[in-house]
Structures are given as structure tokens and as C-alpha cells.
Nucleic acid binder design. Structure first.
Length: 913
DNA sequence: ATAGGGCATGGAA
DNA sequence: TTTCCATGCCCTA
């Protein structure tokens, strides 16, 4: 999204000034921001836009509390007021004082206005809920009891500001749907629904004109929060109130879906909730209502529907779901399939809040059958039930295996649940997490990053690997503020969320200003990463990267030929790029003896530094042969232009000491801190290439495996669901298995030359169950017999049989003929506490040796996971294919610290011999 | 012996 | 600290 077109004019129809430099105004229905001239943008940002331009327009009303005049008929001021239950409006300031934090909502889902069955028992049993019966309106989707005063709940709690939001909407829905509604309410609701669907009724400030003019109605409101992305003090709440539903009809589908979907589809009706929410924030429906047939204990707990469950369904998906019908699709929630979800157990764990909010209430663990239609129109019946769990419940959908298999889903993919009206059907869509081409089975994969719609707004922008907000820090120049570090680029599912930008930038800004580099902000918001830690660097590991934002920025380059749009947030300028950043090779900018700006870059292979133009974009794997600027030095064999001394001068001061230390070593003068960036880049590239591999997303941690565990269990799809692995397969699992075996073999080779190994072997051969336990560590023998699993077979076939010792090498386990999935072959030497540094260096030497030996190996073994050892500067990186360890040698101490982990070894305890 | 149901556990939020 | 939830594992059929 580039808002810096020179041909544009100010979006304000009263202005129309030519724009030299556009500033962002309110969010348009297309999703783009209104481009404003300086003057109008300032007015908008100061909240004086309507005063300046709409004074004569209709729609001005007074705040019921303070009397302030608010322009209620305009998109520009839409977020400046709230509609009061008793009529009238209140300015947002007063509303906040009254604990009303939700701004004006978008359209509520029509399902909220469904007719209500005459009687609702507190505990809705399966009898009352008959999804299988067909198209009857679903009782549990009944409307809120508008006038119900069922607030006499035992545990009614005042709603605190942070409790207001989507979840409250859910709560209200949940609560009220458990209540009876009078016929009056019913009629009213039906009427409301009717009018809503027919578009004849505009809610509150629905008379909003996209271009900011007042008084002209349009059918859709924009998310108010996006109107003030830079200054909302409670943007979370704001955004959380976005609700929408989509009326999909053949003749207007494109428009409506487009518009509707320009907001993050968040189906729960805070609108309605808001409308009927008391000023004091108390829930008029009672927080303690029965939910799913049981009393709610903690209202606050229900008020959090995690962002990762917010549905992000594209218009296309919705349209596919609805087909040609006039159905109204209301996305309810989505969930990324975990390994167990996608496994053959056939149980899909439902997020509790979602289950309680959107699924029929159940009071018995057996639950009830639930008819769900998939995106192909095929209907499935799942058992919706729960298990008691820690005084709570754990909701599951049972019997999902056929459906999941039918949709060819695996762990990491996302299933979406929507509600379709008037059919009254639960619809299950899906989104593949991989970059696989769009499936014909329904919801197409929007983009690799679990993307959203493609129709215009932030959420709609196609974001391949992440959108970067780079921030120009007044002191330090550009900093990355979005938190979209490469590590998360491929994984962050919420990077496309319409508000993530704001949230993140705010979050990161704080971190930056707090002089603390942390990726937490990003991770917290990462939908995918929130649970699928296999793809993430652990918090601690990230910290160990010892990267500052500035350093990380060094890895990212703006997309070529891309003019950023600039956003000012909290006084800081952010450059915003629509396209993914380029993950670049760390370089050193300098000026040559002629005063010409140049860039020094280090070859990935030979580590020699090459001079390139200052504006050159260099991929993280840049090597000498890519040096088109200097043919004489376009080969790794060519000498380095820079002397070590010169390089030292170029390096950051803080690194020189370390550099000096390393200078005397045999290693090439490496890039010191750049090593860390390098490592990060490596990882990013690996993630780039592999991170989206469904198989690698397949599982999450499991209790028996520590964080960082890269065992097959942790990284492979469950229950053999994944594709068959060929011998040449380069998926994570295969690579890891090969790598594991290779290192095992190499180590064995080494050990065989030692008497100790001989002794061990003798012992081994004397063992009655040879091959069996050789030691207590977790190294295993691969015998070839009893290997029944595909992986093990694969290993067997991968085993080079040129060395029989290798076949028996390595380690043993209590499990005969099995590979220890947790084996950490690189750590076969115990590192005594006092010799950490030695141990690491020894390991690195081993790695170097392996690297050497590897080359022999590689020639006969098709693989992409060539181990790399980089030693130099004060940083030492060992790259084990997709697992990388980088050590940062602290100049102050002799103890190298892990720069990054996510490696199968080195960061965990050493195996004992 | 195997598969599935259901609970327990423990990491993460 | 509490709650959620992924998944391990026991028990039963």
C-alpha cells in the first residue's frame, strides 16, 4: 500500500488539494486509508476534521454527558462517540469514564437477530438443539434478550474496562442465548434482523460515507478502530469490537463480501452487547449466566477470546462457502489444527471460549451430535462434547478424522467455523498453512502466512512473508518495529491482522524506547506461533540472539523499487512497506578512499569481504560468484580486497576487541556481531524455505520433550498423516533423520579410532541382546531389524553401508532397534561445568571435522542440509542444516554464549558416556 | 494386541 | 496465579 502517489489529490472532497505527500486518514471501505493532505490529515489526527469540513452537514449531536458536539453521521468521527442504550450518544471521553470502552461497532451478525424459540431452558439439552434437523433456526443462536433484566446473577460482576470487547460480546451472546426471550423481543429481533439483512436499517452511525462526507448512507461501516490506528489508547478494544457478517448474494456478493471482509471478521456482536450494555459496564445479562448448561464461575475468564481464534476468512472463502445462495456467512472462529487435532484420534479440541460461545450448550460430557457442512457442501456429523478438566471443561469435536482427511488437512492448517444463515448451518472451512496452490476444496489458502482477505484493507493486503513497519528512530535511524523478524516472518499468522500493525508497533515501540530488544511483542500476537513452537525460537533463545533491533534491521531491506508510506506513530515515523522485506546479507557501509559510498559484504562461502555498490541488495546467501560488480573478485578464490586491519576499522568499535582476538586464529575475520545477524538470516532463510512446510508445522511440543526438541515426534505430522517420504525428500523430518544419522555415523567413525570405543563395542557384543544398551545416554543403535516405522525404514535406506561400524554405531536405547528421537549426537562429550568453553570449542571442532567429512558424504547423499561451520570474528556459527547454533563470543569473557538455538544440540545438557 | 475413550499432566498464555 | 489446551497415558472394550 503506497499512499505516496504524486498524482493523488486529497481524499477530502472539500479539499482536493494535490498531494505531494499523502498522509493517512481514516480507513476506507476498500481497506485503504484515505490519503489526505497535510492540513486535512492534521485536522483528522487532531479530531477536528468534522469541525473543519462537516460543520454544515447533518448528523451533529451532543454528548449526553458533557454536551460536546459530535458529528455522528460521518466515518471520520465514528470512533469519537458511542451509542447509548437509552438513546443518544456519548463522546468517547465520557464513555471511557463510564467504562464503556467499545466504540461503535460494525454490523452485528444477523444470526444474533434470529427468532427465538419460545422457551429456553437454562440447560439446553440436545433435544432443544437440533442441528441435524436441518434448517431450523438454531436456538443457541438466538438473539440477545434486549430487555431482559436477568442481571440478578449470583456472581454478577461489574465489567471492567478490559472486559469489554469481543469476548464480552460473546459473553452476552452466550449468556443471553441461554435465556428466554419474550415474544416482544422476538418480534423485535426478527424485525431487526429483517431490516438488517435487507439493508433498510442503518445502525447508529451507519450513515457513513466513505469519503468522509456526512449524511450519505452506505451499507457498511468500517471498523472504527482503524480510523485511528495511530492514536487509539485502547486499540485492542477498539479493534476487538469489529464485527461483521457477510450477506453473500450473487448480485452483490462482491461488493458486500469485499466490504465486510475488509474487517477482521469477528463475529460476535459486541455491537449488540454494546448497545445494551449498561454504562457502568455491568453486564445487564449477567456474567454469571449459565454457559453450556453450567454456571459460569469466572466472568473475567470468559472475556478473553484469544486473537488466534479470531476468524480471518477471506471474501473468496466466504463466497465459496455460501456458494450461489443468498446465505449470510458469519465467521465464528478458526483454529489451527494441532497434531492431535489432525491425528487419527479424530478429536478436535475446541477452544473453550469458542465452544461455549458458538456451539450449543451442553451439560453432559457426552455432548451432542453437531452437523457441520464443509466448504464443499458435504455435511458431517461430529460429536460435540466435553471432558471435565481441572474444574473446567475441555471441549472436543469427535469424529472429525474423515472430514479432516477429506479436506486433506494436517496439523498447522486452519479450520474455520462459520455460521450460515438462513440455512442455520455450521460451516467448516479450512485454510492450508502451506504455500500449496489453492485447493479446489473450498477455502483457498489465502497466503502463506495464514493471510486474510485480498480485498483491500490491511488485512487484505497480500503479505507474503510479513509486512514491515520500519521505524525511523530519531536517534538511531531505522529500527524494525513491527517485530516481523525473519524468524517470525513465515510464521506469524497475525501479521495480516488488521490491527496487528498497530498493536505491534505500539508494543515494539515500547520495547525500543525501553532500550530492550525483545521479540515478545511479536510472538505474543503470533497466532501460529503461539502454540506451534516448533517453528519458533524460544523466548530465551531469542534473547540469546543478542540482537538489537538495529542489528536485526540490518537483515531487512525494503523491497526494491518500493516507496514506503510513512506513518507517524507516537511521534515516530514508520516506513511501511506493503511487500515483504528482503532478508539481506549483513553489510558494512563505508566510504572508499575516493569518498564514494560503498558497501562491504562478506561471501557466505569463503567469508571474504567484497565491495559492492551501496545500493546493492544482497541476499543473505550472497556469495562471490554473485559479485557482478567486480568480475575480478567474483570468485571465492580471488583475494580479499580488504586487509584484516582495514576490516577491523570497518567493524563496529564494540567488536574490535573481539575481532583482534580472532585475528590471530586461523579463521577468516568474520563479521563479529554480524555473525549473529548471519545466523538469524540463516534461520530466516531456512524458515523461508521450510517453515511453511506443513510437516514442520505439524506438531507442537509435547510434555515429554523439552522446548527446542526437534525430534521426529515434534516435527512430523501426526499419525503418519503426512506425505510419504522419498529417499530424496528434503523435508524437515528426513533432513533431521539423515543429519542425525550422519552425525552419529561420523562420531562413531571417530570413536572407533579410540580404544574406548573398542571397549564399548566389546561390551556391546557381549550383551545378550546385542544390539542393546551401550550406555545410559540416549544414543541408539540402528539395527535394521524391527524397524517398522516409515521413518525408521527411511533411515535404514539412508544409511550408507560403506561402513558396517556405522550401522552399529552410535548409541543404544532401551528400545531395541529404535532411533532415539531426542538424541543429541553432537553432545556426546560431557561438558563439565568448568569447561564449558572448551566443550563448545571441542564441539565446534567436531563440527568442522564433520563438515570436512561431510563433503565426502554429501556427494553420495542427496541433501540440502550441508552442515556448515563458520568460525571467525568473535562469533562462531555452526549451521546444522535447519538447526543452527551460533555462538557469540563475548569479548569480556571467554565463554561463548549461544547466539541462537533451535538446535538439536548444544543448548541442552550433554549426553553422558 | 489393539484401538479408542477419557483423564491427567504440564507447558504456555 | 489461574486457566487453557495439547497430548501422554491408563483403562476398558
Amino acid at each position: 500500500m503506497s499512499s505516496s502517489s504524486s498524482t493523488k489529490v486529497c481524499f477530502n472532497s472539500s479539499c482536493k488539494d494535490a498531494l505531494e505527500w499523502a498522509r493517512k486518514g481514516w480507513r476506507r471501505r476498500t481497506g485503504e486509508f484515505a490519503d489526505l493532505c497535510d492540513r486535512c490529515a492534521s485536522a483528522y489526527e487532531e479530531g477536528k476534521f468534522c469541525e473543519a469540513f462537516h460543520l454544515n452537514a447533518s448528523g451533529w449531536r451532543c454528548c449526553e454527558s458533557c454536551g460536546k458536539q459530535i458529528h455522528c453521521g460521518c466515518i471520520v468521527s465514528f470512533h469519537m462517540f458511542v451509542l447509548l442504550d437509552a438513546g443518544g450518544i456519548e463522546c468517547i471521553t465520557c464513555a471511557r469514564k463510564s467504562f464503556i470502552l467499545t466504540p461503535n461497532p460494525a454490523w452485528p451478525p444477523p444470526s444474533l437477530f434470529l427468532p427465538v424459540p419460545p422457551e429456553r431452558t437454562k440447560d439446553l439439552s440436545t433435544k432443544n438443539w437440533c442441528p441435524i434437523a436441518g434448517s431450523d433456526p438454531v436456538p443457541w443462536r438466538q438473539a440477545p434478550s434486549l430487555l431482559s433484566s436477568s442481571s440478578a446473577q449470583p456472581d454478577l460482576q461489574p465489567r471492567m474496562p478490559f472486559e469489554v470487547g469481543i469476548p464480552s460480546g460473546i459473553d452476552r451472546l452466550t449468556s443471553t442465548e441461554r435465556l428466554s426471550a419474550s415474544s416482544f423481543e422476538k418480534n423485535k429481533l426478527e424485525d431487526s434482523y429483517e431490516r438488517l439483512v435487507n439493508g433498510s436499517q442503518k445502525l447508529g452511525a451507519a450513515d457513513i460515507l466513505e469519503n468522509g462526507n456526512a449524511g450519505i448512507s452506505c451499507g457498511e461501516q468500517v471498523n472504527p478502530s482503524v480510523n485511528m490506528p495511530h492514536k487509539s489508547p485502547f486499540s485492542n478494544n477498539d479493534t476487538s469490537t469489529s464485527r461483521f457478517s457477510v450477506a453473500v448474494s450473487p448480485n452483490k456478493a462482491s461488493d458486500q463480501t469485499k466490504v465486510s471482509n475488509s474487517h477482521a471478521p469477528r463475529p460476535t456482536p459486541s455491537t449488540v452487547g454494546k448497545q445494551f450494555c449498561g454504562h457502568n459496564g455491568a453486564d445487564p445479562f449477567g456474567d454469571s449466566q449459565i454457559c453450556n448448561g453450567r454456571p459460569q464461575v469466572d466472568a473475567r475468564a470468559r472475556n478473553q477470546l484469544l486473537p488466534r481464534y479470531w476468524p480471518r476468512i477471506s471474501a473468496q472463502e466466504l463466497q465459496k462457502i455460501s456458494g450461489d445462495s443468498n446465505s449470510v456467512i458469519t465467521p465464528l472462529f478458526e483454529k489451527m489444527l494441532s497434531a492431535s487435532d489432525a491425528g487419527r484420534i479424530g478429536r478436535l479440541v475446541l477452544p473453550k471460549k469458542c465452544a461455549e460461545a458458538y456451539f450449543p450448550p451442553i451439560s453432559q460430557p457426552e455432548g451432542l451430535p453437531l452437523k457441520v457442512q464443509d466448504s464443499k457442501g458435504k455435511e458431517w456429523i461430529f460429536q460435540f462434547r466435553f471432558w471435565p478438566n481441572n474444574n473446567s471443561r475441555m471441549y472436543v469435536l469427535e469424529g472429525v478424522t474423515p472430514c479432516i482427511q477429506s479436506m486433506q488437512l494436517q496439523a498447522g492448517d486452519i479450520v474455520t467455523f462459520s455460521w450460515m444463515e438462513p440455512e442455520g448451518k455450521l460451516v467448516m472451512g479450512f485454510r492450508k498453512s502451506s504455500t500449496a496452490p489453492p485447493s479446489d476444496q473450498g477455502s483457498e489458502p489465502v497466503n502463506a502466512s495464514n493471510g486474510v482477505s485480498t480485498n483491500g484493507d490491511i488485512s487484505a493486503r497480500k503479505i507474503k512473508t510479513g509486512e514491515v513497519l520500519s521505524k525511523t528512530h530519531p536517534l538511531k535511524g531505522k529500527l524494525i518495529t513491527s517485530g516481523y523478524l525473519p524468524i517470525d516472518l513465515a510464521n506469524s499468522a497475525d501479521q495480516a491482522s488488521p490491527w496487528s500493525k498497530d498493536v505491534k508497533s505500539e508494543c515494539v515501540s515500547k520495547e525500543v524506547l525501553g532500550a530492550k530488544s525483545s521479540f515478545r511483542g511479536t510472538k505474543k500476537n503470533s497466532t501460529l506461533g503461539s502454540k506451534n513452537k516448533r517453528l519458533r525460537i524460544e523466548k530465551e533463545d531469542v534473547i540469546q540472539l543478542k540482537l538489537t533491533w538495529e542489528q536485526a534491521q540490518g537483515l531487512l531491506r525494503p523491497p526494491p523499487n518500493h516507496v514506503p508510506s510513512v506513518v507517524v506513530i507516537d511521534g515516530f515515523e514508520f516506513e511501511e512497506y506493503e511487500d515483504a522485506p528482503i532478508i539481506g546479507r549483513p553489510t558494512i557501509f563505508a566510504t572508499d578512499h575516493l569518498g564514494v559510498k560503498i558497501q562491504w559484504v562478506q561471501c557466505k562461502d569463503c567469508f571474504k569481504w567484497r565491495k559492492v555498490p551501496p545500493d546493492a541488495f544482497l541476499h543473505a546467501r550472497w556469495t562471490c560468484p554473485s559479485n557482478s560488480w567486480d568480475p575480478e573478485r567474483s570468485s571465492c578464490s580471488a583475494a580479499q580486497e580488504l586487509t584484516a586491519e582495514q576490516l577491523e576499522e570497518l567493524l563496529p568499535i564494540s567488536n574490535r576487541a573481539a575481532s583482534k582476538k580472532m585475528k590471530s586464529s586461523k579463521q577468516d575475520p568474520d563479521s563479529v556481531d554480524l555473525e549473529g545477524l548471519d545466523a538469524l538470516a540463516d534461520l530466516a532463510i531456512q524458515e523461508e524455505g521450510e517453515g511453511l512446510d506443513a510437516s514442520s508445522q505439524a506438531t507442537t511440543k509435547h510434555p515429554r520433550h523439552r522446548p527446542g526438541c526437534s525430534c521426529i515426534v515434534c516435527i512430523q505430522p501426526p499419525s503418519g498423516k503426512g506425505p510419504k517420504h522419498k529417499q530424496t525428500c528434503t523435508c524437515n523430518v528426513c533432513l533431521m533423520v539423515r543429519r542425525r544419522f550422519r552425525t552419529l555415523s561420523l562420531r562413531k567413525e571417530k570413536k572407533l579410532s579410540e580404544k574406548e570405543a573398542e571397549t564399548a563395542l566389546q561390551k556391546l557384543q557381549q550383551h545378550p541382546n546385542f544390539p542393546v544398551i551401550m550406555s545410559e545416554d540416549n544414543i541408539r543403535i540402528i539395527t535394521g531389524e524391527g524397524n517398522s516405522s516409515p521413518n525408521q525404514k527411511m533411515v535404514s535406506t539412508e544409511v550408507p553401508n560403506d561402513d558396517p561400524g556405522r550401522m552399529r554405531s552410535s548409541t543404544l536405547s532401551p528400545f531395541k532397534g529404535q532411533i532415539d528421537l531426542n538424541i543429541q549426537p553432537e553432545r556426546d562429550e560431557e561438558l563439565s561445568p568448568g569447561s564449558y568453553s572448551d566443550g563448545v570449542m571441542r564441539m565446534l571442532q567436531d563440527a568442522a571435522e564433520r563438515d570436512h567429512t561431510q563433503q565426502r558424504f554429501s556427494s553420495s547423499n542427496n541433501q540440502n542440509c550441508t552442515d556448515q561451520t563458520q568460525v571467525g570474528g568473535n562469533g562462531v556459527g555452526v549451521n546444522f542444516g535447519n538447526s543452527m547454533i551460533a555462538f557469540h563470543r563475548d569479548p569480556e569473557s571467554e565463554h561463548p554464549e549461544p547466539l541462537s538455538a533451535n538446535a538439536p544440540s548444544a543448548s541442552t545438557s550433554a549426553a553422558k558416556r
